[in-house]
Design a protein around this nucleic acid. Structure first.
Lengths: 162, 162
DNA sequence: AATAATTGTTGTGATGAATAACTAAATTTT
DNA sequence: AAAATTTAGTTATTCATCACAACAATTATT
């Protein structure tokens, strides 16, 4: 329809010197993926000295901010399967960053609570991640940041209310 | 430092009714991840009827837009390992969407070219993905879109020039 | 000619996410 | 109260993805 067919045919014979991603650049999702790859890579490097990954970091933050929450609540908040959360919690508990406390009123459930070491690591991790964001956003002004947050929220909302 | 310790201790005893992700919401990366998850899920659903995944779709687009490019060029453009690109190309070739043509001037290399079926699927996929973006962006104005693209570019650039 | 580098390929191991099946405990139904 | 259903956490399995090493064929370098 809109694609100039002649160009494609002609170019097929010649050498491709510079690969054009112009079509993909027309999509927001493409830009998001490329940018997020960068963010993820840098964040994981940032967290490596603290022996944390993205998920363990997020889990720790949510546990410190919401002490006493259940594993199922955390799983839902993190958007991971309950089953897959187990190993994450195992890791944090094994490092004495959190405790699994039985809930007297519901003996099926565990209440997750941070230890002192967990809170200390939380503080260190938060500082590190703030630095990471300063680095990757590289002087982006506040207005631009807010615009991104608004846009991301629009995308997230859209998936809820079908 | 800035965290009100008393709140954490007190709340540890009570039930957690609503899980707060306020701390994580302070980070752009968190919003990006959550939003990108939505995008990825919807995009994969969108491409499923065409038997395409994100990577095979991107690969097809780049091959149609850059006919004759080498596998190594495509691998670099897609940011995947040459080794891992092989199976992707195998799939597209197996479905007769592209051809691997030996390059006379360099008999190590293959030139990737779309078939007619490949170009047809390209057109259909592009239309589908445009619909997908319209859906997830849900009436976001052009200015906001451009702001996102600019911001994502800032993040991407930052990772190149160290 | 000898050596090094490049292109595509194969295989493997680590990782992550999705699923089913299970135990224990709570809740609902009968 | 007994039975059935649901829920919380766990285990194991499968599957896809990805990084890495090693390799053959070809080209480039010295």
């Amino acid at each position: 329809m809109s694609r100039p067919a002649a160009k494609g045919r002609a170019a097929a014979e010649a050498e491709v010197t510079r690969v054009s991603d112009a079509t993909l650049c027309g999509f927001i999702g493409y830009h998001m993926k490329r940018a997020f790859n960068v963010v993820q890579a840098d964040l994981n490097q940032t967290l490596k000295p603290l022996d944390l990954r993205m998920v363990t970091y997020s889990a720790l933050v949510l546990i410190v901010d919401n002490p006493g929450l259940r594993q199922s609540q955390l799983a839902e908040a993190l958007d991971v399967e309950r089953a897959n959360l187990v190993v994450i919690i195992d890791e944090l508990e094994g490092r004495d960053l959190i405790t699994r406390d039985r809930v007297p009123t519901d003996r099926r459930a565990y209440a997750l609570n941070p230890t002192l070491a967990g809170r200390r690591l939380y503080d260190r991790a938060l500082e590190a991640v703030r630095g990471h964001e300063r680095r990757i956003l590289n002087g982006m002004d506040e207005e631009a940041k807010q615009a991104v947050i608004r846009a991301m929220s629009v995308i997230r909302r859209g998936s809820e209310g079908g």
